[in-house]
Simulated scan of single mutants.
Amino acid sequence: MEAVNEEDFQLRHVEKDVLIPKLMREKAKERCAERVEAFNHCCKESGFFMVFKCREQNSALKECLTQHYKDPDFFEQCKQEYIQEKLEFLKTGIPAKNRKQKLPTSM
């Protein structure tokens, strides 16, 4: 199998328009964790009335997430991370989720 360089890597439509944005959403939620937690807490406390009572928290969360979604540098960072993960998979044949699992210590 020949080596694939990052410069030669061509992304498919589904990777650019679906998979990388999915990674961006996951990372944006991590970066906006405080606002995610505030919104979740408000929803749990408000029950049925959360639509009315949690508008402020929802707006703050949306603003934080949208800021990341529209950031071209953030897209590029996520794209590079996606490419690195894909290149690693092509080299090893092991999916990222399996590589990140901890090995048992009692072997």
Rank of each mutant, 00 (worst) to 15 (best):
C64F: 03
N40T: 12
D8N: 14
R31P: 04
C78D: 10
Q84F: 05
M1V: 06
N58A: 14
C78R: 00
K100R: 13
E6M: 12
E85N: 09
Q77P: 03
K29L: 06
K44G: 14
V4R: 01
Q77H: 06
D71T: 04
Q67E: 10
Q67A: 08
K16N: 06
R55E: 08
K16H: 00
E45R: 07
Q84M: 10
A3Q: 01
V36N: 05
L87F: 11
L87C: 10
E7P: 09
K102W: 01
A33E: 04
S46N: 03
K86Q: 11
L87Y: 02
K70R: 12
L65P: 01
H68T: 02
N40A: 15
C32H: 05
C32E: 02
M107K: 11
L103S: 15
F39D: 00
E26C: 04
K22G: 12
V14N: 13
Q57D: 06
A28E: 07
C54A: 04
T92R: 00
L19A: 09
Y69G: 02
I83L: 09
E26F: 01
K22R: 11
K16P: 01
A38E: 01
K100V: 06
F89S: 11
N98G: 00
L23G: 10
K62D: 14
Y69K: 00
M1Q: 01
F39P: 02
F39K: 06
E34R: 11
L19V: 07
K62W: 01
A38L: 04
V51F: 05
V14K: 04
T92Q: 08
E26M: 13
R25W: 14
A28F: 03
H13A: 10
R12T: 08
V36M: 10
K44N: 15
E63L: 07
K70N: 12
K97G: 02
K70G: 02
F75I: 11
E2W: 06
F74L: 08
A38W: 05
K62E: 15
E76Q: 08
P21Y: 13
E6H: 06
K86D: 04
F39L: 15
E45Y: 02
E34D: 13
P21R: 03
Q10I: 08
P72T: 14
P95W: 05
L103V: 12
M1T: 00
K91F: 12
R99C: 02
P21A: 03
R55S: 07
K27W: 02
D73N: 07
E2C: 04
V14I: 14
H68W: 06
K91M: 11
F9S: 00
E7L: 09
K62T: 10
Q10F: 00
E37A: 06
L23S: 15
F48C: 10
H13F: 14
F75V: 12
H68P: 09
N5G: 09
T92V: 09
P95A: 08
E26Q: 13
Q84I: 11
K53S: 10
L19T: 05
K27L: 11
T105W: 01
R35E: 15
D73V: 08
Q67K: 03
E26R: 01
C64V: 01
K62Q: 15
F75W: 12
A3L: 10
S59C: 08
E34P: 00
A60R: 12
Y82C: 00
